[in-house]
Computed example of a mutant assay.
Amino acid sequence: MTSRVILISAASSEALRQARFDDGCPVDAAGLKRARAAAGAVPGAERRWVSPGVRCRDTADALALTAEEVPELAGLDVGRWRGATLDEVSAKEPDAVVRWLTDPESAPHDGESVRDFCDRIARWLETAARLTGRSVAVVEPEVVRAAVVRALGAPEPAFWRIDVPPLTATEFSGRSGRWNVRAGRPLGGPDAG
């Protein structure tokens, strides 16, 4: 049985532009404009899902995508770092940031480790693999990175080396345990992202 799962990364927000850990910031005006322009480029699907984050819900709405919220697709829980910029956290807790970026099991922010996050997304992807046809989900970029890492069997440090621009589609096709990945296709053409 072949399954297709398309993950669409959420549109830009002020938090993303500032390299700020998400704190429920909505999509910014430029992101909304690009998402609305890309609405016709979202492929048809038997199932449509959205991460519970504000930015993802805003993006799905702007894409005219009626979608079911899926808690398992929430972004990485960064605990007490939520709302701070990476520079702010690095200035206050430099050793903790280094541990977090180099040790996939580390969660110095009292949130979720990269390993646990990748495992959570992998479990969701395996569940989605049992469904035939196409599924589309609007998610945070780190959800896409975690799915790529697990689908390709890449080492967890690769998580930090995958760029996922706003409003790009990454497609997983195949079946549980054997995925093909087509990454980073801009929605609505080359200048949509």
Rank of each mutant, 00 (worst) to 15 (best):
residue 1 M to W: 08
residue 3 S to D: 10
residue 5 V to P: 02
residue 5 V to L: 08
residue 12 S to Q: 14
residue 15 A to M: 09
residue 16 L to D: 09
residue 17 R to L: 14
residue 17 R to T: 13
residue 18 Q to M: 15
residue 20 R to S: 01
residue 20 R to M: 07
residue 20 R to P: 10
residue 27 V to K: 06
residue 30 A to Y: 05
residue 31 G to M: 05
residue 34 R to P: 00
residue 35 A to G: 05
residue 35 A to F: 12
residue 36 R to Q: 12
residue 37 A to I: 08
residue 40 G to L: 12
residue 41 A to Y: 04
residue 41 A to V: 04
residue 41 A to E: 08
residue 45 A to W: 10
residue 45 A to F: 08
residue 47 R to K: 11
residue 47 R to Q: 06
residue 48 R to N: 12
residue 48 R to E: 08
residue 52 P to Q: 04
residue 54 V to P: 07
residue 54 V to Q: 12
residue 55 R to L: 06
residue 56 C to Q: 12
residue 56 C to R: 11
residue 56 C to Y: 07
residue 57 R to A: 07
residue 57 R to N: 02
residue 58 D to M: 08
residue 58 D to K: 04
residue 59 T to R: 05
residue 60 A to L: 11
residue 60 A to Q: 10
residue 61 D to C: 03
residue 61 D to P: 04
residue 62 A to V: 03
residue 65 L to K: 10
residue 66 T to F: 03
residue 67 A to N: 12
residue 68 E to A: 09
residue 69 E to N: 04
residue 70 V to G: 03
residue 72 E to W: 05
residue 72 E to G: 07
residue 74 A to M: 05
residue 74 A to I: 03
residue 76 L to I: 09
residue 77 D to P: 05
residue 78 V to G: 03
residue 79 G to R: 08
residue 79 G to Y: 11
residue 81 W to L: 06
residue 90 S to C: 13
residue 94 P to E: 11
residue 96 A to H: 06
residue 97 V to R: 08
residue 103 D to N: 11
residue 105 E to H: 11
residue 106 S to Q: 03
residue 109 H to I: 02
residue 111 G to D: 01
residue 112 E to F: 01
residue 113 S to D: 01
residue 113 S to H: 06
residue 114 V to W: 01
residue 114 V to N: 01
residue 115 R to C: 08
residue 116 D to N: 04
residue 121 I to C: 03
residue 123 R to N: 05
residue 123 R to E: 04
residue 123 R to T: 06
residue 124 W to C: 02
residue 125 L to M: 06
residue 125 L to E: 08
residue 127 T to A: 10
residue 128 A to F: 06
residue 129 A to D: 14
residue 130 R to M: 14
residue 131 L to V: 10
residue 132 T to M: 09
residue 133 G to R: 11
residue 133 G to N: 13
residue 134 R to M: 15
residue 138 V to Y: 15
residue 138 V to I: 13
residue 141 P to M: 14
residue 143 V to L: 00
residue 143 V to A: 00
residue 143 V to H: 00
residue 146 A to K: 09
residue 146 A to E: 10
residue 146 A to L: 12
residue 148 V to W: 14
residue 152 L to A: 01
residue 153 G to W: 09
residue 155 P to D: 15
residue 156 E to R: 15
residue 157 P to A: 00
residue 160 W to E: 00
residue 161 R to Q: 15
residue 162 I to Q: 06
residue 163 D to W: 13
residue 164 V to W: 00
residue 168 T to A: 01
residue 168 T to R: 10
residue 169 A to K: 14
residue 170 T to Y: 02
residue 170 T to H: 03
residue 170 T to S: 09
residue 171 E to D: 14
residue 175 R to L: 12
residue 178 R to S: 15
residue 179 W to C: 01
residue 181 V to T: 14
residue 182 R to C: 14
residue 184 G to M: 08
residue 184 G to H: 03
residue 187 L to H: 05
residue 187 L to E: 03
residue 188 G to R: 09
residue 189 G to E: 06
residue 189 G to W: 01
residue 189 G to S: 04
residue 190 P to H: 01
